[in-house]
Design a protein around this nucleic acid. Structure first.
Lengths: 247, 247
DNA sequence: ATTGCAGGATCGTTCAACAAACCTTAGGCT
DNA sequence: AGCCTAAGGTTTGTTGAACGATCCTGCAAT
């Protein structure tokens, strides 16, 4: 680009590529991607032998990768039975949204109030996530809207400026993606909330954090309800033929 | 139907007693206790060979135990260098207290408001933690006061009634115990806060959650400051001659 | 329809081995 | 002396094989 400074910046951004990582971490990366993309569905068993064979790693290393993923709650480990892709229950969804209310709400209320321009960088990230989502919606890219929505909520939590909160937040959103597999189409899920995000961003920029919290909590309530409704309807569909009384 | 369901319910409550655990988990338990009691100090290296030899387990299972502990942030794993007992930095303390403000504050504000007796159980736990602390203080058991204080804050977070929040909270308090090793005596740390806990409990019982949040946040500020001061004085003692600018 | 009992499959754990990365130490150079 | 380099020993990362323990499946028996 410009010159010498462009060099170093480029190098820094490429630094992660030479951050060595154990093969267990790489294996975990591969499996995580497949789970998140829905190529391995919740409830599926991850057999040690077949996966170790397919990836050409030893069972011991694969087991270390499993530990990493179970720590992220993407898989569950049952003693002597193996590991399975996590199946979210209604209780999980309720719990996750309860935590989101706590983290995002607190971030907005305690740290979103600083209206002075000195702490604007965090707020500007919120705004850019909103515009990103609007742009994606305008070109009909509902997958992009979903990604932007995640950015939005992560930027809300990031107002607290805490590495731990950021990490937990990413983990919660990753978990939720397991639940999104029950959604028939992502559009129905994300479309209603574009306006909410915009309103929250505006309120934060105006320093009216109390009102922003109110909108956020209302948003979380509706999103949670929608997910739970989808869960209930799916459960109904499944137990219909599992009912043994009709033989 | 009434009789049969009573049976199974009782069985479910006793189910945990036959929950077997892997040897890796047992090894992690042993090491966790030693770290928490200060028998292994922060910064110490946990060599695989010697520990595996002492505990009579294979290196592989020991490494699985290490994963568990590093997930709890009690040890850190450096690639090709080994695992070390976590050394908390000032930045860590700041971050942990930021998270505590978010979780405990949100729990108190969003879920502590329910003054109806129907949701009293959670509030009663807060109260009993307070009386436990007072009793310990009266008999001079300052270790007991510390334990009661942890119970108190865990019961505050438990108002949210979320398994995830409970887990994170326990983890944060466990991490903080690593920092407490810098405190000369625990009494100086806990004594000033007995009154705060009592006041918070009373406010919660009265349904005045907004005021309770204020007291709690003030408490967290002071506790954080005290810890950071202790950190600074210790660092000063260590690097006194490393700073050539001041005379 | 439930119970009891093989047989096979999978997991938990150990062991021994080797390559790779790290740390220490001894020389060699200016 | 002080600094760089190279050799050697030590510890970690990963593998492959092995064996007991546990779980699952199918079939026979009541």
């Amino acid at each position: 680009m410009a010159g010498a400074t462009g060099w170093t910046a480029e190098l820094i951004s490429a630094r992660h590529s030479l951050e060595r990582s154990s093969t267990a971490a790489k294996v975990a990366d591969i499996l995580r991607d497949m789970v998140m993309e829905g190529r391995i569905l919740p409830g599926a068993k991850l057999a040690e032998d077949s996966i170790a064979d397919a990836l050409q790693v030893s069972r011991n290393t694969l087991r270390e990768a499993f530990r990493l993923l179970s720590h992220e709650r993407l898989v569950v480990h049952e003693l002597n039975r193996g590991v399975f892709v996590r199946v979210l229950t209604e209780a999980d969804v309720i719990d996750i949204y309860r935590m989101r209310r706590a983290l995002e709400g607190a971030a907005l209320q305690f740290w979103g109030a600083s209206a002075d321009p000195g702490r604007a960088p965090g707020v500007s990230h919120v705004r850019s996530a909103v515009t990103l989502g609007v742009a994606a919606a305008e070109r009909g890219d509902w997958d992009g809207v979903g990604t932007a929505n995640m950015h939005f909520h992560r930027s809300i939590a990031a107002l607290a400026d805490s590495a731990r909160i950021d990490e937990i937040m990413s983990q919660l959103l990753a978990e939720l993606r397991l639940a999104f597999h029950v959604m028939p189409t992502v559009r129905d899920f994300y479309e209603p909330y574009l306006g909410d995000n915009e309103r929250i961003a505006t309120l934060v920029e105006a320093g009216r954090s109390q009102e922003a919290v109110a909108v956020l909590l209302d948003y979380l309530n509706r999103a949670e309800d929608q997910l739970l409704r989808e869960f209930a309807s799916k459960a109904g569909r499944h137990s219909a033929q599992a009912d043994p009384a009709s033989t």
